[in-house]
Nucleic acid binder design. Structure first.
Lengths: 119, 119
DNA sequence: TTACTATATGAGCAGATACTCAGATAATGA
DNA sequence: TCATTATCTGAGTATCTGCTCATATAGTAA
């Protein structure tokens, strides 16, 4: 008989308290969801390049597209995603929209992760 | 005639130097790739729950499966991914493998991101 | 060895996602 | 007003991903 996910393995009986405590101290599901969304935003090379560039200076959509070698449409789609998560904001100057990082948390995350992979 | 990605928009002419500098100061492609992989590892609710639990104590596969309400197979697949990225390691005690975080960078990343979304 | 338990792994599938394309929208200036 | 430029957006599509299922592997104890 194949093991179902609802079955308990023997070690579960021994570790029952460990599991109970782990469940009790886990993050709330809405926190987990938002957390995952932010990491998803960083989990793509195009968006990482955009964020890393904006960390140095504000840039408009067409500059970013030129930098990345992608269509302005592709960049705009990604910027919308980053905007919705409030990772970037923009200011308008005539027809041109200049994007910048919303705060310094993102660059902090990228720096720490770079440090991690250089160890 | 629709605009092609190879065309330059007018603002590109003005901002040419901005784009050149952005390209010059961008991360190397292998760094970007590894960076994205690490954020991908964190960009999933199941893996976040696993990492958050392991941040508190080492746990075996079947404990994690019980905690998450998933099959041990599903957990094992995710642990392999985390192992390959050296985010977790394990020790064997008889037939049981106890997993733990490889270092404290991961919990640092999660904490900073939590801080960000609580602002 | 054989039986049993814990974990790992490959195949396959349903759902997510990152791009392109075509067309819409918004600010500017003639 | 109309044309132009910069950006946005919806639809479509190829690729990626996280799960399940079946099976393989590794350690333990009889």
């Amino acid at each position: 008989m194949p093991k179902q996910s609802s079955d308990l393995c023997d070690c579960r009986l021994i570790h029952r308290q460990v599991v109970e405590e782990a469940i009790a101290s886990s993050l709330h599901s809405d926190e987990i969801g938002t957390l995952a969304q932010i990491f998803k935003a960083l989990a793509d090379e195009t968006r990482l390049k955009i964020l890393w560039a904006l960390e140095k200076r504000e840039m408009c959509v067409c500059d970013l597209a030129a930098m990345l070698g992608l269509t302005e449409s592709a960049v705009s789609h990604q910027l919308r995603l980053l905007r919705n998560l409030q990772l970037v904001t923009n200011r308008r100057d005539g027809v041109v929209l200049y994007y910048r990082l919303a705060d310094n948390h993102v660059s902090q995350l990228i720096r720490i992760t770079l440090e991690h992979l250089r160890d």
